[in-house]
Design a protein around this nucleic acid. Sequence first.
DNA 1: CTGAAAGCGCTAACAG
DNA 2: CTGTTAGCGCTTTCAG
Lengths: 365, 365
Amino acid sequence: MTIENGGNGKGGGRQGHWTMQDIADRAHVSPKTISRVINEEQGVSESTRERVLDIIKEVGYVPHTGARSMRGNRRDCVGLTVSAPMSEVPLTEDLFLRVFSQLYRVFGKQGTFVCFDLNPFASDPTGNYGRGLWEHRYSACVICGPLAEDDEVIHRVHEAGFPYLALSRLDTLPEVSYATVDYVEAARLSTEFLIKRGHSRIGMIQGFKGFHPTVERERGYEAAYKASGLEMDAGLLRPVNFGSEEIPDAVHAILSDPTVTAIIDTSGAEDAESLREGARRAGRTLSEDVELVAWTYTQDAVVSAEACAHVWLPVWEAAVQGISELHRWFHDEIEGPVTILLSPRLYETPGTEEISKARGLFDLT
Amino acid sequence: MTIENGGNGKGGGRQGHWTMQDIADRAHVSPKTISRVINEEQGVSESTRERVLDIIKEVGYVPHTGARSMRGNRRDCVGLTVSAPMSEVPLTEDLFLRVFSQLYRVFGKQGTFVCFDLNPFASDPTGNYGRGLWEHRYSACVICGPLAEDDEVIHRVHEAGFPYLALSRLDTLPEVSYATVDYVEAARLSTEFLIKRGHSRIGMIQGFKGFHPTVERERGYEAAYKASGLEMDAGLLRPVNFGSEEIPDAVHAILSDPTVTAIIDTSGAEDAESLREGARRAGRTLSEDVELVAWTYTQDAVVSAEACAHVWLPVWEAAVQGISELHRWFHDEIEGPVTILLSPRLYETPGTEEISKARGLFDLT
DNA sequence: CTGAAAGCGCTAACAG
DNA sequence: CTGTTAGCGCTTTCAG
């Protein structure tokens, strides 16, 4: 049996749509009283409150969030948005699952909605990825993906005062709220390690062409060279898009120069085969005439059995911690911004069993 | 440089918050003209339109969804909600990734928001999992998880006329919009197969205690017994909660009866070790003194090397197809409801390499 | 082509 | 303890 609409007659076009006025009419009180009951405010007699609650339950009334959002700033939804088109910088399945799990644990479980803006670039090529905030769809958000050097949206988000968390940093906004890994240090560690092993011309496969993480890698690389007194050649750095098929080409290009005797894979693709393929095309063999340092997001994992060392970047761990902090900010338990910067760790390759290549979130068939 | 608020002075409490009126003031036109530009309506001169668009871009104005939602029913967000507490009926990682990927492909990619209500049971123990719709947070939704026999929410969603898709069916609402697998047929096939092999007392591990899928499994089991003329014993059916540790207990209990010579695992846990463990506790050995038929969600997979047959349930495939249909309904290309019912397929065990146990979405540490 | 007025459902502020 | 009024930012309707 369906209960009919309270009969305001105007009905936003939809049947079975109850408003506060309808409930008020049924309960013979004013809308404000309903509002008080719903928001658990003082000043309603126990009997009225119960009567109202009964009616609300009976008809299944739920307040209209849109209308509510026009008055105050209720915090009942957190967003996740991407700062670059998914096609250019795909999320890996591993990172996404961790981020999603953590959003569930700290927000979803307690009834907060979690809203994804998966392609803010669809309608607006410049990608106003903060739109969910401006639209009042959510009142806090996680920003996944790398930030472009000239990103303006992040500045707006920062200034607007919403709780937010970027999973990257940005020079042009050093006070940004972030949870990430010290890529500068990771690059410095990797380069220093190879220099100490006697290499002087070291190639580097970077990730995220055109974005800030590339800058961080360069800075660490440069620092290690500077400290060693050796001369650095910027031509040995090659950005590639994550998840692209560009790795073999990049490795090939770098190793075609016979003076290059070592290479660092910072791409995060965790794709040993592409590295091998690139070396092969250049007529080189990893661990024989080229030494490799590979980056990974899994603790103590082996990306490539030929690598002489690996660097673990606890990106997932940073994201998980960051979301916890964001949650506390969301509930005004702390003030923003969040600043979590985990350190990378270099270790000599502990075994030969390689982990499988990182899978993009939408690689599934 | 930040541009200051247009100065309506009232400012919903937040700085840098632009309204249509602000844009109108700047452009020296009325708010309605701004509205026309935003909604790509006719009746604005090219020059005005451009001027307005420039201002909008300059200040980064985005219309307030809440306010918009109070008039029409724009469709710019799709929801996903769960019909049972996540703790009772966890989503597997596999299903979730497929559902999420498909939501991305058909909705997210084109700029539609995707909003998750991960625990409608947090604030309301009865679980009004349709709340996102009533709140006008989203205008269509996917309902994950099994439906309870006495579920009322699904009736309300159905009657409200929103596009929706349940990933289960329900007897009390046969016209529900669904995309799932024929569990009745899967149970019938499994039972018939074992009866034909000469078994007369067959145990069955069910899933989702207290929910409708259990009913469907019973129905198929019963149908096979009826067709064979054998007598059925309802005591051999044991529901377990998915993902729980109850499987060994249930197997043990069933196999403690020495007249039981076969067992069907319909739980979907894909957990060979738990089945073995249960048999062991009952002093039995799979494939020696008990025959097993195991259900799986992966095509041609081997859940247990000891099984004499497997039944593949294309649940993921149904969900993916269903979301495509939901998308067409969302855009009024078709009328609802969606009715996708894929058939299970029984195959004799093709190999011995077992797939790994299904992982819950939030099992990650 | 453009604007004025009314009102969506709710809540803050102020009266009783 | 309860009600009245006004107004959030937008879109619909009707008038220019």
